[in-house]
């Protein structure tokens, strides 16, 4: 029993407190919820810039690059006189 009482006395010993003012400031900073909209707004802005950049640079005209073999498939009319096509289809 003496052992147990000694142990409990050890637990009862108070431990020097921390810097309560510093911890109070940290708690206040964490307690105030940070607004979400600046992050959301900057992400949306970055996405918009990417989309606009893509739209401006992408060539939407089908078959615009007649040098590729695939463009042959998309052409409505036969491609005559094209060096690459002649090479591919030469007999």
């Amino acid at each position: 029993m003496a052992d147990y009482n000694g142990y409990v006395s050890g637990l009862k010993k108070s431990i020097a407190g921390p810097d309560y003012d510093r911890l109070y400031r940290v708690i206040q900073t964490k307690a105030v919820p940070r607004p979400v909209w600046p992050t959301a707004l900057s992400l949306a802005g970055a996405l918009a810039v990417c989309l606009i950049g893509f739209a401006l640079n992408y060539d939407f005209e089908p078959g615009a690059n007649s040098e590729t073999v695939a463009s042959y498939l998309n052409e409505g009319t036969a491609i005559n006189g094209n060096e690459l096509m002649s090479y591919v289809f030469q007999e």
Binding site: L11, S14, I15, P18, L23, K30
Partner: peptide, 23 residues
Amino acid sequence: WRLVTRYVAGQQDREDLFQEVFL
């Protein structure tokens, strides 16, 4: 603080727990 010191050892853990309690 007194209660917190009886659950965790180490100053950093104690301060973290103390903050968590007050939050």
